[in-house]
């Protein structure tokens, strides 16, 4: 028999740990052809952070995205970064990139002001690769011209270095109280399942994931992160387990043939992904992280849905078909007895 149920789970997840130094460094140079090179320690592991970091730099310096080249993933060339993990790249490396880009922009505008014969650069605006006076837009020059002037005439190549680390704030030793993270990420997910009471199979028929990651800097990347997280969460909730050999020791399923991860047929066709965009004032352009916690509410939502469908409460993951079937039998036995 097929039993249907719905379950929900909410979460908050810490972002930007403050317990100890947690830095990200960035380096930017603007070339005399108007392009820029962004050098960052944060490594893109497939989530698209190179795109996102380039977006921040380009936005801040008034360049086109295509004019920013990102150098990363080589510790010999790039500044220090505490690592890609814990949702920290957009928030911490993003802040570092924004701070650095601001410095580069300042140098650029100062050079432009000198070239234009202005006393200071306060009224200058950069947009789409050009610098102009706010109240007299005809008075303009390209970023390439300003950078060349700075390099060749002022003898000041446009280079900027900065970093970001959340203000360190150790927890109170006695009580453990304090502020261990700068910001929090929030999410709610709802799963609809069908439980096959003859086999214990749990089919996730629909999954709704709504996240608050602050302002989305790149909605497609955010969507991809949430989708990936949800699939990981389904694996955590229903499939993935390391089976130890109690007699011989060792692991009995040390390959992807026996360690089961969800396939495309195990993922709900109906996945609704949305974001509540509440800008985080400490984040770059209001952004926070999104990645890791996307898989956190999935398994609990599924487990709640199984309970809603069948009355069976699974208390150790994953809820494999065997575990669910035995729990159903146990429940039947209790109800009859």
């Amino acid at each position: 028999m097929i039993k249907k149920g719905t379950g929900m789970a909410c979460m908050f997840y810490p972002n930007g740990s403050t317990g100890k130094a947690n830095p990200a460094g960035a380096f930017i140079k603007i070339n005399h052809d108007g392009t820029a090179v962004l050098n960052i320690g944060a490594t893109d592991i497939g989530q698209g952070s190179n795109t996102c970091m380039a977006q921040i730099a380009a936005q801040e310096m008034g360049l086109k995205l295509s004019q920013v080249r990102v150098v990363t993933g080589d510790t010999e060339l790039t500044p220090y970064d505490a690592g890609t993990g814990a949702c920290r790249v957009t928030y911490i490396a993003g802040n570092a990139v924004q701070k650095t880009a601001r410095k580069a922009k300042r140098l650029l505008l100062d050079a432009a002001a000198r070239k234009m014969g202005l006393i200071h650069s306060g009224q200058l605006v950069i947009e789409e690769g050009e610098i102009f006076l706010r109240y007299w837009p005809a008075k303009r020059m390209t970023i390439a011209e300003a950078a060349t002037y700075s390099e060749r005439i002022l003898g000041q190549p446009i280079i900027a270095v900065d970093s970001y680390s959340p203000a360190t704030m150790p927890l109170e030793e006695e009580s453990g109280q304090g502020m261990p993270f700068e910001v929090s990420i929030y999410a709610t997910q709802i799963a609809e399942v069908e439980v096959d009471t003859d086999t214990g199979e749990v089919k996730v028929t629909k999954l709704v994931a709504v996240h608050d990651c602050g302002k989305m800097l790149n909605p497609m990347l955010v969507e991809g992160q949430i989708e990936g997280g949800v699939v990981t969460g389904i694996g955590y909730g229903l499939y993935e387990q390391i089976i130890e050999d109690p007699v011989e020791g060792g692991i009995r399923n040390p390959s992807l043939a026996t360690y089961q991860i969800p396939t495309s047929l195990d993922v709900p066709e109906d996945m609704v992904i949305d974001c509540v965009e509440i800008p985080e004032e400490k984040g770059p352009y209001g952004a926070k992280g999104v990645s890791e916690p996307t898989c956190n509410p999935t398994a609990p939502a599924i487990i709640n849905a199984i309970y809603n469908a069948t009355g069976v409460r699974i208390r150790d993951l994953p809820a494999t078909r065997e575990k669910v079937l035995f729990a159903l039998r146990e429940l039947e036995r209790k109800e009859e007895g």
């Binding site: 097929i2 003859d198 199979e201």
Partner: peptide, 24 residues
Amino acid sequence: IVAENMMRRVVLKACRICENEGGA
């Protein structure tokens, strides 16, 4: 357990009594 449950399912399916039960 699954062998006996699936025996029921496959016989009914072959007799076209309850197809598309979904699931496994």
